[in-house]
Computed example of a mutant assay.
Amino acid sequence: MKPGSCRVALAVLALLFAWIVPATAQDAPGPARIAVVSAFEPEWTALKAAVEEPRSEEINGVEFVSGRLDGHDVVLFLSGVSMVNAAMTTQLALDRFQISTIVVSGIAGGVDPRLSIGDVVIASQWGEYLESVFARETDGGYRLPSYARKSFANYGMMFPQPVSIRRAGDTSGDRFWLPVDPKLLAVAAQAAGAVKLARCTPEQACLDHAPQVVVGGNGVSGMAFVDNAEFRRYVADTFQARVLDMESAAVAHVAYANRVPFIAFRSLSDLAGGGEGANEMATFFGLAAGNSSALVRAFLTALPVAGVAEPKIP
């Protein structure tokens, strides 16, 4: 083959290789960014509208909006509802962008009976509480397989189990609780006092209380929308959970596996079956989403521009 033809062939092969092999965060263009993740459209409307010099691109059907928000380089995207969607899109973002921090903003169901609709919970750890063994029923109750453990109280045949997580440098594997980065949590606590949360929707459906920000405690996530008072009590008693949703723990799982700092802001749109009458989400999801995004923006404003160091996760 002539030298010129060889160079052309190598160039063609390089282009084909670049097309076949996806980009990684290491060779992704642009600065390190804070990923701001919401589950569905109403949760990111206000945040997306506030991005300066937005640049939108679609990757595998997911829209990513890059730009500046409250002094930081960010990339916003919708995870989609459900644990699988949340994990898939978060990993996609990590593979395509240089992500320094992951922030979740959205609505949730309230579990702690001391909390009310509109409150924002910033949990210090998240668990995948519906990862379970459905045990065999016996005359005396239920019998677990020999490999399973009873880490928490069961709900009938459902026995919650830890999740095996693999990441470089770890040998333990099994975890239930996935921690929020403590430095991010401290900044969030500082920012909480600067936010006045909304009490009324644009349609003037108003709460009879002033919403509050609660920092710390437990959150849980799973593949179920919960609107059941009995199950809500079980979740509160068993996991000492303040809030539940369908995405945050999945994002925490991916963040933990990739050693990226993570925090989630979840505002209560309903009480997961604990309220009187019909589920309240349809009425208050807009108010809750707005309260969450307002606190996220206060958090970003308070966050040092240099961000935080890699967390020391045990």
Rank of each mutant, 00 (worst) to 15 (best):
G118C: 12
G61P: 09
W126I: 00
F134E: 12
M83T: 15
F77I: 09
A135Y: 12
Q91I: 00
D70G: 00
Y142C: 01
I107G: 04
R136Q: 12
Y147I: 02
Q125C: 03
E57T: 10
S116P: 00
Y147S: 12
I107N: 07
A49P: 00
A87Q: 08
D112R: 03
S82R: 14
G71F: 08
F134V: 14
M83N: 14
M88G: 00
M88V: 14
V104K: 02
Q98C: 07
V51Q: 04
V104C: 15
I107H: 04
V84W: 06
D139A: 14
Q91F: 03
S79E: 10
A93G: 11
P54A: 09
F64Y: 15
Q91G: 00
E131Y: 10
V111T: 05
N85Y: 07
M83E: 14
S132D: 08
D95N: 15
D139F: 03
P54L: 11
F77A: 11
Y142M: 01
D73F: 09
S124D: 15
G80W: 08
R136A: 09
Q91H: 12
M83A: 10
S82P: 02
R55W: 00
S146L: 12
S151C: 10
V51S: 05
P145H: 09
D73R: 13
R96K: 14
I117T: 13
A46W: 11
T101P: 01
F152T: 10
I99N: 04
E57D: 10
S100F: 05
F152C: 09
L78R: 11
Q91R: 15
A108H: 13
A123V: 01
V104N: 10
D70I: 00
I122D: 01
G80M: 07
S66Q: 15
P113S: 14
Y147P: 00
D70S: 10
V65G: 02
S116H: 14
I102L: 13
G110L: 10
L94C: 05
V84E: 11
L130Q: 13
A123E: 05
E53N: 15
A50I: 06
L76F: 07
V84C: 01
L69E: 06
L78C: 06
V133L: 05
P145W: 05
S82M: 11
S151F: 13
G127M: 03
V81G: 01
F152H: 11
V81K: 06
E52N: 04
V133A: 04
E53I: 01
E128G: 01
G106F: 03
Y129K: 00
F77N: 07
V133K: 03
L130P: 03
V51R: 04
S79L: 10
G80E: 13
G106V: 02
P113N: 09
L144H: 11
I99P: 04
G141P: 06
D112L: 02
Y147C: 00
V120M: 02
P113H: 11
N85D: 12
E137M: 06
V104H: 01
T138F: 02
G127N: 07
G109C: 05
R114H: 06
A148E: 05
Y129D: 05
E137A: 13
F134N: 08
R55D: 05
V111E: 01
E58Q: 13
G67D: 08
G109W: 04
M88W: 06
D119S: 05
T90I: 08
V111P: 01
F64D: 04
G109L: 05
S146M: 08
L78Q: 14
